Simulated scan of single mutants.
Amino acid sequence: MGVLLGVLDFICLILICASIICFVVSVLKKKSKKVPIITFVTSFALLIVFTFIAVTFFPVSDKTTEVKTSEEVSANNITEKKKQDNVENNDKNAQKQSKNEKENDKHKQEPAKKQEPTKDTALNEQEKKHEPADVQQSPVQEPEPPSEDEAIETEPSVNEEKTQENEKSQEVDVSSLSEDEYKNMCEILWYDEIFFSKDSLEGKYVRLDLFVEEWRFFNNKAAYDVFATDFINKYNLQREFYKCGVQRENENSYVGGQITMYFTNDNGYSASDMTEGDHLIAYGEIIEYSTLTVDGYNSCSFLPKYIENNGQ
């Protein structure tokens, strides 16, 4: 009802404004002024009546303000309780710390109690003094044979045997081995194991199935530009060498990366012993290896000790 009275008051105000405008227009145009005067008086009277009714019978309630004040009071009470709780917790923590410190001080001040000797300690003292004790000797039990699963776990795999053999070969004096012993010592490696290994293979003795692809030659200046002098002198390298492909496992394919096969004056082989297109089985040492390359293939330099013609 209060809203309706407010709307009626607003309409009365609009009529009052309209009557004033009509009165001014009628004065200017010299017309009758009764209609605007009547509308002004009636609308003004209605405005007074409606406002009186609204003020007397429908006063504005203070519930909203009361709610706001009650909420503020409750919020203030909550904050005060939190502060009191924090103060109490701090006091409790301080008391606990003081108690712990007192207990630690007591433990430090109290002397350590002497332990009474037990039977176990007495036996240990007798054993230390080598005094005879009445101990019955139990019969020696033979160890039980390992089960099949334990036997399988203890047996080394094929790869472990190869790595063990290769490690042993590095410890053994290679120059003292016969040809058969040297060949048996070498580990068989294929294409993927050479060009995509994540670990360095430098120093390994390997058996490679090679395809001779490109003949190369370097003079002294190129040798010093590419290699260090001590590297050339260490292996007594020849000037001629080959770029070779490595066979893929279970495939008759050599396409892809190439290894560099050098020749030393100490092994009796040279580049003139073979031509491009030959298939070889070579036994020797990897003298240089790198996994940090631009083309994605690991770089590998190989020095053969024994070479066999594959005859493919």
Rank of each mutant, 00 (worst) to 15 (best):
A54G: 10
P59V: 00
S61T: 08
T65A: 15
E66N: 14
T69M: 08
S70W: 12
E71C: 12
E72S: 12
E72M: 11
V73Y: 09
V73A: 13
A75F: 07
N77H: 14
I78D: 08
E80N: 10
E80Q: 12
E80W: 02
K82R: 11
K82I: 08
K83G: 03
Q84S: 15
N89V: 09
N89W: 08
N89C: 05
N90P: 01
N90V: 02
D91K: 13
A94S: 14
K96L: 06
K96V: 02
S98E: 06
S98G: 04
E101I: 04
N104A: 15
N104R: 14
N104L: 06
K106Q: 09
Q109T: 07
P111H: 08
P111F: 04
K114C: 00
E116R: 13
P117W: 04
A122Q: 12
N124G: 00
E125L: 12
Q126T: 02
K129H: 03
E131R: 07
E131M: 02
P132A: 12
P132Q: 06
V135Y: 13
Q136V: 09
S138F: 08
P139G: 01
V140E: 05
Q141Y: 03
P143M: 01
S147C: 03
D149P: 02
D149T: 12
E150Y: 05
A151F: 05
T154P: 00
T154M: 09
E155W: 02
N159I: 00
N159Q: 08
E160Q: 11
E160W: 05
Q164K: 15
N166C: 04
N166R: 13
E167L: 10
E167V: 06
Q170F: 06
Q170R: 15
Q170C: 07
V172W: 14
V174A: 09
L177G: 05
E179R: 15
D180P: 03
E181S: 10
E181Y: 06
Y182S: 08
K183C: 01
N184Q: 13
M185A: 14
E187C: 01
I188A: 08
L189C: 01
L189A: 09
L189D: 01
L189E: 01
W190M: 02
W190C: 06
Y191H: 15
D192T: 07
